[in-house]
Design a protein around this nucleic acid. Structure first.
Lengths: 226, 226
DNA sequence: TCTTGGAAACTGGCACGTCAGTTATCGGAT
DNA sequence: ATCCGATAACTGACGTGCCAGTTTCCAAGA
């Protein structure tokens, strides 16, 4: 069910029976899959009232970055300590490819979520290369889980282009591939925090704009949620 | 289904139908619960061949500690930065209680898993107090997941008493409650690594002894696992 | 004694149907 | 036009039953 990775916007309802019909199977395996997605936090369901793709709050996004700061920083430390030459070189190449992709995205005329998702997938691959080099599957899995979560949330706030330093990941990869463990960890910490600040700022901007919109359209339109 | 937290030794088979009968329900909700446990890594199942409580390998235990070093170190950093006075004081009290419990365990005449589990529960509570103080649920959840995993594995290797420094957690709590963020992180890193070394040494000792045993009993008794 | 093979018992996967609770819709009252 | 409430459609939870693999175990052969 990787269909859900970015193609379904948050809030989309997922009906067990409807999906079962589309996929040509009974509703039981669909329910299992949905339950798994719920366990990973990608989806939330109220009993007997439907399941929808999770809508993240600002706090949850912030929390995701706190978690990631812990995981990725340590991952970088381990990479600097124990990656072999081939992995280091490969990381540098991926970093260059990623920076090129981001720069191309920033230069393109109009925002396309499909294109953005493609670049974000490279971004995940970049960090997973680091994580996998630690040779600790449990650890790499934890990083992947939290990355997938954010992958699904980020398109809520990324309505316009991503504009980042031109050689952002290249510099990070260099710190990981050539620096000490502490330098690598510090570089990664800086990387995660930069991104966190950027995303949260976008989120708050979005929230302000939405509040403005709803106030302009109507008076008592605010619904009680949950 | 918290029944599984320590009372069922690794390798115990979990039959959907048998559990359903015991609990007086149909097999469907039981299957759901087991699927959830599998998602958390507490249980592993081969299709149409049964589900059993997961038997951890040395690598997985080591991996668990790598993950924990990342999470707990950051958790300690955040605690030192943003816990309030009440939380700091409470942590000191829990640390004292935990050290007392460990010392009592070390003095008792014979090993009792039930008693040990009780102490380990306090140990989890200690670390969860730190994690909860960060006010990042996603982060605290990640720590809890990895702690619960190890909670289930540790009794495999802990066949004798736990002997630790007498004021071990008290000193750690002091570093967290009164030190800087960096001091707190360093103290926690030291704490996790000490425990990791201890557990892995026990695990290898156990593996050596089991290999010896199986060699003494019979020749071609080694089963092909997978 | 050790191997082997085959059948019975058991396993999880899944289909189908029912049930109780939630939500959305639409017609009637204001 | 707005509000409201009854009802119908829909939702996930779960019971029952079958199926195709896997494991286990015991008897027959070496």
């Amino acid at each position: 069910m990787a269909i859900l990775e970015g193609t379904l916007p948050p809030g989309t309802p997922l009906s067990r029976r409807r999906l079962a019909e589309e996929l040509g199977m009974s509703s039981v395996p669909v329910a299992d899959a949905i339950a798994r997605l719920e366990g990973e936090g990608l989806v939330e369901s109220k009993a007997r009232a439907g399941t929808r793709v999770k809508i993240a709050t600002a706090d949850e996004i912030r929390g995701n970055y706190v978690l990631r700061e812990a995981l990725e920083t340590h991952s970088a430390r381990l990479f600097a300590e124990c990656a072999d030459a081939r992995q280091r070189e490969r990381l540098m190449r991926t970093a260059e490819r990623l920076d090129r992709a981001y720069n191309a995205l920033g230069r393109s005329k109009e925002y396309s979520q499909a294109r953005h998702a493609k670049v974000e997938r490279i971004h995940i691959e970049f960090h997973m290369q680091i994580a996998r080099a630690t040779k600790v599957p449990l650890f790499a899995d934890a990083i992947e889980r939290s990355r997938v979560l954010l992958f699904n949330w980020i398109f809520t706030v990324a309505r316009d282009f991503e504009k980042f330093p031109e050689r952002w990941h290249r510099d990070l990869a260099e710190a990981l591939a050539k620096g000490s463990a502490e330098e690598a960890a510090a570089a990664m910490r800086c990387h995660v925090r930069f991104r966190q600040a950027d995303v949260i700022e976008r989120f708050q901007h979005l929230a302000r704009r939405q509040e403005q919109d709803s106030r302009m359209v109507r008076g008592p339109r605010r619904r009680v949620e949950n």
